[in-house]
């Protein structure tokens, strides 16, 4: 046995990351560091990140292309909003109820949708989102239709009230980290492996005792709960919801987030979500051409880096490690020769 080194490069790296995270957590919401507007953008980015994380379980780990993320996020948002405005519930409680309802809803819907496979599942998930959006836009008594629900009370969890963007930033930050760690852990469990085996080949998965159908349904539930959480937080953060951000087009954006960041990486979901929320803000000078460039950009992205940004980084690391190994080997051979 080798003696254990305490400060391996890996651990040093982890410490650095932790310091960056803590620094961001403390510094960004301080008054005067970023403008109120940009803080709102960051908060939105964190909310999108939570929803995207759920999708990364389905798409990255399970290989299922779903267009339901935004729709189910809407379910969470509307349940939270309706309970807290129409029935005067506490918002914290409303979000929890929304999560439970979201889990049950995704389970039942998942059971139905996963009777289809591959592309046909994707078709049906579009149907689901459209169905939900139709309900959001037309059930006037509950959802106020296309005008949306206004004056949703701020989040209140009893001992703490979240009223400004700064406090929301901290809250969202913590929730996002918890969700992130959850997904990271999931990758290491038998469920993560089961999901990965389903993605690569369902027959192989089944011959290793994996119930493909239920495994996919569970992934849909996980994605659904994450989306509902994001939806509930979206509602209390913005204070206003309309059907607009829960439409099919938005679902497509979540897919692109994952693909941009890197489909095999949990951190990629963060990269993708933050890039796709911040880039539009920084690219305002492109005006009307922005979306065209964005669309073309997606195609180019798929052609040149199908595994996303993290894919490129991993590739680079892989090559570097390979080079180091080779160098070591050649050194060893040289010393032997000497």
């Amino acid at each position: 046995m080798k003696k254990k080194k305490i400060l391996t490069p890996k651990i040093i790296g982890k410490i650095i990351v932790a310091i960056i995270i803590i620094a961001a957590f403390i510094i960004i919401p301080l008054p005067g560091v970023v403008s109120r507007y940009m803080l709102k953008v960051y908060n939105d980015g964190l909310i999108y990140f939570i929803a995207a994380l759920g999708l990364s379980v389905m798409l990255g780990m399970g290989g299922q292309v779903t267009y339901s993320t935004a729709g189910i996020m809407g379910v969470g948002a509307y349940i939270t909003a309706i309970l807290s405005t129409k029935y005067g519930w506490n918002t914290g409680l409303a979000i929890i109820v929304a999560l439970i309802a979201g889990a049950i809803f995704s389970f039942v819907v998942g059971l139905a949708l996963f009777r289809l496979k591959g592309s046909y599942f994707s078709f049906a998930s579009i149907g689901l989102t459209n169905l939900l959006v139709t309900i959001f836009s037309n059930w006037m008594e509950m959802t106020e239709g296309p005008d949306g629900i206004t004056r949703i009370p701020k989040l209140d969890v009893g001992f703490m009230k979240f009223t400004d963007f700064n406090s929301y930033f901290r809250l969202l930050f913590i929730i996002a980290i918890i969700c992130y760690l959850f997904v990271l852990r999931l990758r290491k469990t038998s469920y993560g492996r089961a999901l990965a085996s389903v993605r690569d080949n369902e027959i192989t998965a089944a011959s290793f005792g994996v119930n493909c159908y239920m495994t996919k349904v569970y992934s849909f539930v996980i994605a659904g709960v994450f989306a509902c959480l994001a939806g509930g937080l979206y509602a209390v953060h913005a204070g206003f919801i309309s059907p607009e951000p829960f439409k099919y087009d938005q679902s497509a954006i979540y897919l692109i987030m994952i693909m941009l960041g890197g489909v095999d990486s949990t951190f990629g979901a963060f990269l993708g979500a933050s890039l796709l929320t911040i880039i539009p803000e920084k690219m305002r000078w492109l005006n009307e051409y922005y979306k065209l460039i964005y669309g073309v950009g997606v195609i180019i992205l798929m052609i040149f880096m199908p595994m996303g940004l993290m894919g490129i980084i991993d590739n680079f690391k892989y090559k570097m490690i390979g080079k180091i190994k080779k160098r070591k080997q050649s050194n060893a051979i040289e010393t032997e020769a000497n």
């Binding site: 038998s190 089961a194 290793f208 005792g209």
Partner: peptide, 13 residues
């Protein structure tokens, strides 16, 4: 390989 040992252990998720 752990896909194989998962089958042997048969733990719930």
């Amino acid at each position: 390989l752990e896909l194989g040992t998962d089958l042997r252990n048969q733990f719930t998720y």
